[in-house]
């Protein structure tokens, strides 16, 4: 049965960009183990001959004519931004301080 350790949860949280407190890690790790144990029942149910389904109904690429249609103005697109500067999204530094 799959066990998910506290360290693994911490690693996954880092990958998912969520800071989890110690209390949250203590709480979440055992819950995730229970869920994983339940879903592990599907292991080996479908053989290699079964194709995967990613979408309920068959789909093909959808194209449209390459014509300009009205879209959001810059003001509208920026209207929900936490910070704006010079008609652009203003974001924290993206490189390390030593860079």
């Amino acid at each position: 049965m799959p066990e998910i350790s506290r360290d693994e949860v911490a690693h996954l949280a880092m990958l998912a960009r969520i800071d989890l407190s110690d209390a949250e890690l203590d709480h979440l790790a055992p819950q995730l183990s229970v869920i994983l144990e339940s879903v592990a029942s599907i292991n080996g149910v479908a053989g290699d001959d079964v194709p995967p389904t990613s979408h309920a109904l068959p789909l093909t690429n959808v194209f449209r004519e390459d014509v300009v249609v009205p879209s959001l103005t810059a003001e509208e697109a920026l209207s929900g931004a936490p910070a704006v500067e010079d008609q652009r999204f203003s974001v924290p530094r993206i490189l390390g301080e030593e860079a």
Partner: peptide
């Protein structure tokens, strides 16, 4: 595996 079982359910 889940995607394959999705096929079986369909």
């Amino acid at each position: 595996q889940a995607q394959k079982i999705r096929t079986l359910i369909s």
